[in-house]
Computed example of a mutant assay.
Amino acid sequence: MAKTDEVSIVEELSKAEEGNATVGSQRSQEDPTWCSSTAVNLTQKIIAEVIGTYFVVFAGCGSVAVNKIYGSVTFPGVCITWGLIVMVMVYSVGHISGAHFNPAVTITFAIFRRFPLQQVPLYLAAQLLGSVLSSGTLRLLLDSSTPHFFGTMPVDSNLQSLVLEIIITFLLMFVISGVATDSRAIGELAGIAVGATILLNVLIAGPISGASMNPARSIGPAIVMNQYKGLWIYIVGPIVGAIAGGFVYNLIRFTEKPLREIARSGSFLKSLSKNRI
């Protein structure tokens, strides 16, 4: 093919692209229903948060209800279920929405300018919707009467449960801040780290406070089953604990230089595998 022919083809393609861009811009001005890519991306994020929160509550609270009804899951099984479902959903939709599934996490990210403030109400609504829908599903599928309540209520004093919720949510947000917001962390292990933290927290605080760490996780079952005893604890405690955990991690974040630049490797895990070979 001659050089002049190649130039003419390139010119024709560039003109066609410019024409398509002009048509697209004119359509967006003339048709208000024409969605921009930003709107579509935000919609995808909201849907991902609804689905993620739905299955986190479905599996976690479902294991609680099944264990109370049939006694087949056992308490260690409930702890493992909570950790596994969070880990699975983080890896499933974390690259779409950030995998918050928790109003306390969303609020904390927004406070420390790691999440757009204007998107906070949409995320909170999506998380609450996912929790309510999931709780309603469990209510329909299982014999979830009041003795089989799969929400969270303080076993002893309100103060004990409040302090415990603050502490365990502090730990959760501290870990999330480390693996999700620090570029020096090993990002491939974020889901495992967060899931393991939730497993440990439920193992410790589950018998006392229910180990909510998540206002949506407690609000959904409370609304569906009309049980509001001590609900404020699971709203105030996780939010205070998450903000404190994010604040403390920011105090020890002394550099923004990624570990990958220091190690001069595309991936820490890949470098480990190469060394082993």
Score class of each variant (00 low, 15 high):
T152Y: 10
G136D: 09
S135W: 12
V132F: 14
R139D: 14
I111Y: 09
V155D: 02
F109P: 11
K229Q: 14
V155M: 13
Q127E: 14
R184Y: 05
G191I: 08
L138C: 09
S161K: 08
L172W: 14
P121A: 11
I166S: 00
Q227I: 05
L203S: 12
P121Q: 11
L141A: 08
V194I: 15
G136R: 10
T146S: 14
S157W: 05
L159T: 15
V105W: 04
Q119D: 12
A110D: 10
I208D: 07
G210W: 10
A216H: 09
G195N: 06
Q118N: 13
V175L: 08
L199R: 03
S209K: 08
V194C: 00
N158V: 03
T169M: 09
P116K: 01
L159R: 01
G191D: 02
E188G: 15
A104H: 07
L128V: 11
G151Y: 04
I219F: 15
Y228S: 00
S131V: 09
R184M: 05
A196Y: 02
I176L: 11
S144I: 07
I198M: 05
A193W: 02
F112Q: 04
P103M: 08
A216L: 07
T146F: 13
P147G: 00
I208Q: 08
Q118M: 12
L122E: 03
I198R: 01
A185K: 02
I204D: 03
L189V: 07
L199K: 06
F170G: 03
A205N: 10
G206M: 10
T137H: 12
I107V: 08
P121N: 04
L141H: 07
I111A: 14
T106E: 05
A180V: 00
A205T: 04
N214R: 06
I235K: 01
A196L: 15
V120H: 11
I166H: 05
R113C: 10
Y123R: 01
T181E: 02
G210P: 05
D182I: 03
M153F: 04
L117Y: 13
F149E: 00
V105T: 04
S144F: 01
L172S: 14
P215C: 06
P147N: 04
I168A: 05
L203M: 15
A125Y: 10
R184W: 09
P103E: 02
T169Y: 04
L231R: 02
I235W: 03
P207N: 04
I235N: 06
S144E: 07
F115N: 12
G187L: 11
L129K: 07
T197K: 01
A222Y: 09
A104E: 08
V120Q: 02
L162R: 00
M153T: 15
L200V: 15
D182Q: 06
I208A: 06
S135E: 11
I168F: 10
Y123I: 01
G136L: 01
G130A: 11
A180Q: 00
L141V: 07
A216Q: 00
L203T: 13
I186T: 07
G220W: 12
Q119T: 13
T197D: 05
Y228L: 04
A196V: 05
A180K: 02
G136F: 08
E188S: 12
A110N: 03
V175E: 12
G187N: 13
R114V: 02
S218V: 09
A205E: 03
L140K: 12
V202P: 03
P154C: 09
I186R: 06
F150S: 04
S145M: 06
G130M: 10
P103T: 01
F112I: 00
P154V: 09
